[in-house]
Structures are given as structure tokens and as C-alpha cells.
Simulated scan of single mutants.
Amino acid sequence: MFDAQRTAVKQSQQLLKQGMATQRNVDTMALTGLKGQASLQRQQLELAQAATHGYVNATAAVLPSDDASEVHRTIDETFDQLKTTYAEFYDVLERELERDVDSANELSEEFADALDEQTDQLLEITQSVEDRTVQNVDELSGQLREQLERTQELQDQLEDLLENQTSDVEELLERQAEQIERFQQQLEEQTEAVTQEIPVQGTDEPHTKIETDPEHTLESVEGIDEEVREQLSEAGIATIADLTRAGPEAVAEAADIPESQAEEWIDQAEA
């Protein structure tokens, strides 16, 4: 882009110089033409003078000799004055035109010098703009590279954070899975304990009914109200026997109480 601008500036400079040279040639041709016109005009005056003398000579037969000589002298004086007047006129015109040509040439040279100076300044400015543009592009490229590097760093940090969070989630899921497994194991143990109290069908042993006697239910234990009985029942602890078999830890977890309180209930059940 900048090369094209410099080329256009230089071409404009050459065109202006060519135009000034053409104008100087036109002025020179005009001056040359003026000199030719002055010479032609002088020749025409001389021809007119000769023709006038010839006319006078042709009519000399009817004029006295003295009058003819006077007429010829008058003709010569008149044409000499005309020649002098035309010569002075063309001299003045030629001097003015030469002065104009010289002034035009001088002005053209000054204009050409000024044009060269301004063109050089314009080219320097163009080069300076190009240098600054290249520098700005380099700076912008550097800033973009830095921004990309910072973006990559942030991306790496985000990936590390996600990886750490994923590890934490996996550990949490593993702990929850272990807790669920322990709960299922406890539930299976409690279910097995309950089924052991129910006789197998087809045997001769009498069916054992679920204890409903207040002495065998949890109502006989002081501190176990209806809400707690429901909590314990959901955990498979519905009778005194269930309470003593479950142990303090299971009772405390099922009723959401301290183990010391669970131990007191078990002591009451065993008494």
C-alpha cells in the first residue's frame, strides 16, 4: 500500500514537471513566432514602399520632376517612420515577452524546487507513517501473544481446578457409597435377626407371635416415647429383645441420641 502511494506521488511530480516544460516550450515558440512576425511585417512594409514608389513613377509623366522627387522623399520618410514605429513596437513586445518567459522560467524553476522539496517531505512523512504502522502492528502482535499466553494460563488453571473438584467429588461419592454399603449391611443383619424369631413354615414348632405385651414392648422403657418408637421401628427395633440385641451404637444412630442414653435404655430392657 505504501509503495503504491510513493509511486503515485513520484508520478504526480513528473507530470507537473512535464507540464511546466511544455509551458516553457510554448512560451519559447511564442517568442520565436513574434520575431518571425516582426520580420514579416518589415518585409510587407518594404514591399508596400516599393509599390508606392512604382505607382509614383508610373504617374511621373503627369507631374513635374520636382514634385515627383518630393513625393518619393515623403514616401520614404513615411515608410521609415512606419518601420521605426513597428520596430519599436516589436522590440517592446519582444522584450516584454522575453521578460515574461524569463520570469516564467524562473518561476517554473522555483516551483520545481518547491515541488521537489514538498515531494521529499511527503515521501518522508509516508515513510514515517509506514514505520509507525509497522511498529504498531508489531506491538499489537506482541499484545495479542501476551493475551493468548494469559488465556492459556487461565485455561490451565481452570483445568487443574476442575480436576481437583472432580477428585473431591469422586472421594465424596466413594464415602457415600461406603456409608450406603454399611447401612445395607446393618439392614440385612437386622432383617436376619427379625426373621430368626419367625418359625419356618411346615415345621411342627408353634408360630411365635410378635410380642405385644407391654412388658416386652418398648413402651416399658422409660424415655422412649411414640416418636422414638417409630424411629426405632423403622430401624427394625420394635421389642425389648430387639433393643438388647441392637446394641448402644445402633440404637443411638436409629433414635438420633447419645450412646449413653441408648445404654440406659438397654440396661432398663435387660433388668
Rank of each mutant, 00 (worst) to 15 (best):
A250C: 01
D256P: 06
E249P: 02
D267G: 01
S233V: 02
E259S: 10
L232R: 00
E263Q: 12
E227G: 07
P248N: 09
G247L: 11
I240P: 03
A235P: 01
A255W: 02
A241C: 09
A252C: 09
R245N: 15
R245Q: 15
L243E: 01
W265I: 06
P258Q: 13
Q231D: 12
A250E: 12
P258I: 03
E226H: 04
E263N: 04
E230Y: 04
G236W: 03
P258L: 07
R229A: 10
A262I: 07
E230P: 00
A235H: 02
E230K: 15
R229D: 02
T239D: 04
T239G: 05
E227A: 14
V251G: 06
E234K: 12
I240H: 11
S233Y: 08
E226G: 07
P258A: 13
Q231L: 14
Q261D: 07
R229N: 02
T244D: 08
Q261H: 04
P248D: 03
T244N: 08
S233A: 15
T239Q: 09
L243Q: 05
G236F: 05
A246G: 01
G236R: 02
I237F: 04
E249A: 15
A238H: 14
A252G: 07
E259W: 03
Q261F: 00
R245T: 14
E253L: 13
D256N: 14
A238V: 13
L232W: 00
L243M: 06
D267R: 05
E253F: 09
E253N: 13
A255Y: 03
W265A: 05
G247N: 08
D256Q: 14
Q261G: 00
E263M: 08
P248S: 12
D267F: 00
A235T: 05
S233M: 04
I240C: 10
R229H: 04
G236Y: 03
E249H: 12
E249K: 14
R245L: 11
E234W: 06
E249F: 12
P248I: 09
E253G: 11
D242Y: 06
T239V: 08
G236H: 03
A255G: 07
Q261Y: 01
R245V: 10
A262N: 02
V228T: 12
A241L: 14
E249T: 15
E253Y: 07
T239S: 15
E259R: 08
W265Q: 06
A250H: 13
G236Q: 03
S233D: 15
A241V: 13
D267N: 06
E259Q: 13
V228H: 01
Q261E: 09
T244Y: 02
I237P: 00
I240L: 15
D242I: 08
D267K: 04
I266K: 01
D256T: 10
L232K: 00
E234H: 10
A241R: 13
E264Q: 12
T244A: 13
A255F: 01
